[in-house]
């Protein structure tokens, strides 16, 4: 199966939720130094603990950018507590493409930013 499916390329071309969030409750920057992928996630959380706004900035390959876009779509309007528990399977299901081990790092970088978003910056 070709990993460069229409859906992946569309998200790469026009990522959803791309841009900074001015009033973010949490932000998190993650980089993959081996390829230069670099993403920052922003979320706003309501008093009830629900994510009600998401944004991300940065640059990366088609896989990591599509992963960031798909993940941003998915976590919007979900409880933060549940999102923090996301496993890599959630991300891989969202992408829906087979990945070789070296590309897993690309696919999982945005998830890493999201699941660490409440942790103090490095």
């Amino acid at each position: 199966m070709d990993i460069y499916q229409e859906q992946i390329l569309e998200h790469y071309k026009e990522p959803h939720h791309f841009g900074e969030l001015a009033n973010a409750s949490y932000t998190r920057h993650e980089v993959n130094t081996s390829c230069g992928d670099d993403f920052t996630f922003f979320i706003h959380v309501t008093d009830a603990g629900i994510i009600d706004a998401v944004g991300f900035t940065g640059q990366g390959c088609a896989i990591s950018t599509a992963a960031a876009s798909l993940l941003a779509d998915d976590i919007n309007h979900k409880p933060l507590a549940a999102v923090l528990e996301y496993s890599s399977d959630v991300m891989l299901n969202l992408l829906g493409i087979p990945l070789v081990p070296t590309r897993l790092k690309c696919a999982l970088l945005p998830l890493q930013a999201v699941t660490r978003i409440t942790q103090p910056p490095l």
Partner: peptide, 13 residues
């Protein structure tokens, strides 16, 4: 594959 995506500025630029 990437034709039409080559001039994007927000990623991979």
């Amino acid at each position: 594959t990437f034709h039409g995506y080559l001039s994007r500025t927000n990623s991979g630029a």
